[in-house]
Amino acid sequence: MATIYDVAKAAGVSPKTVSRVLNDDAPVGRTTREAVQDAISRLGYVPSNAARVMRSNRSGLIGLITGAISNTPEAGDPKGLPELYIVQGVQEIFAEEAKTLMISDTGGRSDRVPALVSTFRQHRVEGLIYVADYHRQTRFEVRPGGPPVVLANCYDTIGTPSVLPDDRSCQRSLVARLIEAGHRRIGYLTLGNYMDATGLRIEGYRDAHADAGLSVDPDLILEAYREDHTPMTSALNRLLELPEPPSVICCGNDEMAMRLYGLLRTRGVEVPEEISVAGFDNYRAIAETLFPPLTTVELPYRELGRRAARRLLGIIAKDPPGTDDPVRIPGPVVWRSSVTAR
């Protein structure tokens, strides 16, 4: 493997001159520069990144820990594909900044995270992003003296910078649109109550009713997510048996909405003529292919990834924070024909 001394000898210059050409940190004559570049090309010389890191304390490397590669969502999985989309948003920003993103997958094992962090530190990454599979609290360990960390789609109890989807705002916007369309009895089949997002979305549901001066009927809000789907069947039965059934039913995610279409049709209930349906996530493989296409709200996962990357870049550059934690990213309502006006 060629060294800087081989390049200097081939170009007839000193190693210091080769270093100046490589780092562009001092003036070098055009003829000399061309001779050095020609020698580099002929010898196939590759500069030592380790040496550059020691000189500048900047490796240009960013570490990212995720489970997006190994985690393949199953049907009914409440997580959809957030990790993959978040990683894409992160990559987009670091590519623009000429940073190299090093991705390590947990393989679904949280106990591997400390070892991955240690490996990244050995490679002198400038910062780390940890991407969770769904909105939740995490115990990611941030060590003193280590690279700065930003959490994406998760948060901790010690104030590590974090970026989260604004579940409350998203649900509030969706229900507000349903109310604008004339719906007053709005059913809500939620994800599991153990999920942070569920509580926040119920708050958003209540916010939209309060904004419109409407009371909330607690009988319209039912937990309905389980892998065997039986809670959805019983929850739907309870909604339809109410003295005044809902005119629209919101679901905790688009997969649940897809199942709801089938359950309603087995009962002879037409969507949206008799009951409208709304989802959550804007999982387009479902929302755009259902008939009728599904009204839903988009969780902006790519934007979440972009914002996490920008936050980390700001921390690395020692910019003023300019924001409180966590940063919450809202998403738009995507109106399709599964909801009809009343």
Rank of each mutant, 00 (worst) to 15 (best):
Q91M: 11
E92A: 13
E92M: 05
I93D: 03
F94W: 06
E96H: 07
A98T: 06
K99W: 11
K99C: 09
T100C: 07
L101A: 04
I103S: 01
S104R: 07
S104P: 00
D105T: 10
T106G: 01
T106P: 01
G108A: 06
R109C: 03
R109W: 02
D111G: 08
P114L: 07
L116E: 05
L116C: 02
V117K: 06
S118P: 00
S118K: 14
F120P: 04
R124F: 10
V125D: 03
V125H: 08
G127I: 12
L128K: 11
L128C: 07
Y130D: 03
Y130W: 11
V131Y: 03
V131P: 06
A132P: 08
Y134D: 12
Y134L: 13
H135K: 10
H135V: 09
R136M: 14
Q137L: 14
Q137G: 14
T138Y: 03
T138W: 02
R139E: 15
R139F: 06
F140R: 04
E141F: 02
E141R: 14
G145S: 10
P147W: 01
V149M: 04
V150W: 12
V150Q: 10
V150L: 10
L151P: 12
L151N: 05
N153P: 06
C154Y: 00
C154W: 00
Y155V: 12
Y155Q: 14
Y155N: 02
I158D: 13
I158P: 00
G159I: 04
G159M: 02
S162Y: 06
V163C: 02
P165D: 10
D166R: 06
D166H: 14
Q171V: 11
R172P: 00
S173F: 04
S173I: 01
L174G: 12
R177H: 07
